[in-house]
Design a protein around this nucleic acid. Structure first.
Lengths: 232, 232
DNA sequence: CATTGTTTGTACAATATTTCACAATCTCTA
DNA sequence: TAGAGATTGTGAAATATTGTACAAACAATG
């Protein structure tokens, strides 16, 4: 074990993956899983798996592996995922609404309890099963709700003030989908999910040499049918 | 300069951020920017900025800094972002539709040219300004379109076969939003955007000790109004 | 219950990435 | 055009992360 220094962030990210892997393995009927089995399922090397787990204790039995159920429970507790977590979203536009309806969150025991916007034409409207709330009321409302996890799905220009308001409202960790940096007080954590950046990174790894035409070729369903006809 | 070894991935990710920073700086009227200025805007240390840039050449003038316009152009070329890039999406559900309408892509000169689904009740319907295409036709259609960037916005259980089809269709880089690992041949690059994982990582950093109640407090607009009345 | 075969946990080695510091280079002003 | 001030590019040091290998611990089997 190595409880001295806190686990590196990449380890935490992988633990989340192990947890998912374990839950799937359980559904598959597996009761025990070796680090080599986890490698097969996740692509993360068995040595890495063992080292990651060793940051938090000794979970396995030599010669056998890890008890799926037990390890899942213990990892869930470490990650604070052993009970439902409440989240809020700010921004009820295109992306915010999609996030509000994302079933992946629900399946992983996240519970969306509020969605805010500043646009009067949106406030009061329903998104999935929630009313869109007035962002001006966040401080008051969250004094009762106590949500600690916030997601920013607004345009970049208002992201900072949204983050400020979240922090004032008691939010402790923020997932920022807006393409801008937000500054928060020490103790509050921000992670950025920058969709454009992800695409841009991929572009760099695009094979060189094939200069793309600037004329786009957009094909509609009907045209598609034609092509199919032509080729069959 | 250091053209021997290829730039590390974290450097590539930051270059994308510098590029965004430069474009904003240009709009602000800046013609020149020092690495210290970039630090102020991005939060990335000036030394890191200089080292990152040094992987690709010498762009700055001692005593002055970097010419905004020129650096932006050169970085754009390095990142293959100096001309529009075509993308496709598979999965026209909740998330896929939101991605299709995400203005951030368009603003950064990405051009969505096709969205596919396998659900007959969706195929042919319109999402934003595109018809939803039958995924069965991807190989044929993309033979003409030549899209090299694909985004997977499907349930996990079909992600692998979608990735396989993309690769057969000529896609070279993949942005995978489904919560599962997809395996692709050498030479094809996959990046994962795992929304649930991001939330789970944040949970780990949640302050300890405050065990949340499992009873949710969801507040509707009307209740919200009441609270406001009470407190004002 | 001894022996063979697995698998863990971890020390150590190897890479990868970031930070630091400073000589070299350029600007700017008088 | 000389001197003061600013900023770059980059080695070298410091951290951080990953890979490797193996002794110790346990299972399983006959």
């Amino acid at each position: 074990m190595n409880t001295n220094k806190s686990a590196p962030e990449p380890t935490i990210a992988r633990i989340a993956l192990y947890l998912r892997c374990l839950r799937i393995a359980k559904q598959d009927g597996a009761t025990t899983l070796s680090s080599a089995d986890i490698e097969k399922r996740t692509g993360i090397s068995s040595g890495q798996v063992r080292k990651d787990l060793s940051f938090f204790g000794e979970f396995g039995k030599p010669g056998l592996g890890y008890a799926v159920d037990e390890l899942a429970q213990r990892l869930a507790r470490i990650m604070r995922l052993d009970h439902p977590q409440e989240i809020m979203i700010v921004g009820a536009g295109n992306l915010g609404s999609a996030l509000a309806g994302y079933t992946g969150f629900t399946e992983s025991d996240f519970h969306l309890v509020a969605i805010y916007d500043n646009n009067f034409s949106k406030i009061g409207r329903r998104v999935w099963d929630l009313d869109i709330l007035d962002i001006e009321q966040m401080e008051e409302l969250n004094a009762k709700m106590g949500v600690q996890i916030g997601m920013i799905a607004t345009p970049a220009r208002v992201a900072q003030e949204v983050a400020d308001r979240m922090v004032r409202s008691g939010v402790r960790v923020v997932l920022n989908f807006s393409p801008t940096r937000v500054v928060v007080p020490k103790g509050v954590i921000v992670r950025n999910v920058d969709l454009t950046q992800e695409l841009q990174i991929l572009c760099y790894y695009l094979p060189a040499g094939d200069q793309q035409e600037d004329a786009f070729t957009t094909i509609s369903s009907d045209a598609a049918k034609n092509i199919e006809d032509e080729t069959e």
